[in-house]
Design a protein around this nucleic acid. Sequence first.
DNA 1: CGACCTATTGAGCATCTTCAACATTCGTGG
DNA 2: CCACGAATGTTGAAGATGCTCAATAGGTCG
Lengths: 244, 244
Amino acid sequence: MAINISDAFARKLGAFVALSATELDVLSRLHRRRRTFVAGRDLVHQGQSEQAAYILASGWVCSYKSQPDGSRQIIDFQIPGDFLGLRSILLHTSDHGIQPIVEIEAAEVRKQDLLDAFAHTPRLATAVLWAASRDEAMVVEHLVGLGRRSAMERMAHMLLELGARLALVGMGNKTGYDCPLTQYHLADALGLSAVHVNRVLRQLREEGLVTFQGGHVAFNDYPGLVALAEFDPTYLDQVGPLLD
Amino acid sequence: MAINISDAFARKLGAFVALSATELDVLSRLHRRRRTFVAGRDLVHQGQSEQAAYILASGWVCSYKSQPDGSRQIIDFQIPGDFLGLRSILLHTSDHGIQPIVEIEAAEVRKQDLLDAFAHTPRLATAVLWAASRDEAMVVEHLVGLGRRSAMERMAHMLLELGARLALVGMGNKTGYDCPLTQYHLADALGLSAVHVNRVLRQLREEGLVTFQGGHVAFNDYPGLVALAEFDPTYLDQVGPLLD
DNA sequence: CGACCTATTGAGCATCTTCAACATTCGTGG
DNA sequence: CCACGAATGTTGAAGATGCTCAATAGGTCG
């Protein structure tokens, strides 16, 4: 049961850092305070003071920042195994909102429990900080995409990155994955209009590269897509932290 | 002398966290390994393994990521008092390059020295981590700009943000600041062509908002510029970490 | 059924890019 | 001290990319 929930997180960390039985145990104990959240209602509100962080067990979530003019920019999507709100546990306010895209299950992690876990199993602390740095690298890569890639390239890159991340937790492979995002989500993430997202998706489909339909992404020509996006997964694959 | 070098860094941290004499002393000791770097030659290379980090004492620096097609995207600019390469000290590779824009002075910080300083003065560790989180918040804000703001708004926002950051270390105020950036730097940071940067700057000048000329930024209508950019410096001004 | 959310497509338009030419500044060597 | 070249800044014109507005269709859920 607990094993089931902690699966994705442990699997992700374990892909880069060998975790001992003790560490896995501490990890699973962090998952006890399990909760369910409905789609659309924010977990963390922009500007709010927040003590708790979460480990996402199932479902998808997005972090976003709302603009005064009403538009919003999605910073990143989070998938099972991802840590939510780590920064707002270290600091004490959140500069962005966190919203479930579908109904999700997440384990609430109290600030004190996390700090205790870190104190007792330093390797775990290093692993989590490594994961946080990887998240930051993804944000940077996203920024590069918005600044220097065309709409087609951005879309291809995003679909590939999500695929690579999902593959790490056993929820996808090079043929495709299930994806609950709407075209509006993609638009808000990629800095495009929803209309243009639709056209881009059509073109990618007509060129036989990817199909995004009915909640499923199907890679029809994986190498072709990688070439179009100039997708270099180095920033995801980085070796784990030095664990002397 | 050491006081002089550590000035900007201590001043920045001190603006948010009250530092004791002991902490200031530890801080100044971190600045001993002072070095000079010429403009244009990278301090840290993209993809390189790097042990050392730096505290920038004078001059400007940019972090950037090069694309396979030759274009580059500047992630952020660093100014005196900023920490360089903190992530590459925690992990062990850098996913981006760091390049001096002018000749700079920086204090090299060895991994071990930093960890020692953190161990002896935890408040200092918290303060530095707070600074790192603030940097991340700036990257996020930059991402939002690229995704959801027009060229004019982006430019206005960037010039205002730099002004606010410089003011924190006593190098600028609401009337303006000295700025060594070329229009190419701005283009690479804002995701625009250099040509368009030139037009945008002209328009901002003609509308009496800012003047960017001869290495100097002059705010001609600060409130007007803030309104245009919808500049909300909350993400820079955040209160310091909880230092219980 | 009706309301609402999501997806789709067309037409016209704004923003920003590219290409090209030219001006200006600045450092360097003659 | 001047001449030259390189880097930076400036401007015009043409074109591409992506946006807005608008209309329509399918799907889901109460």
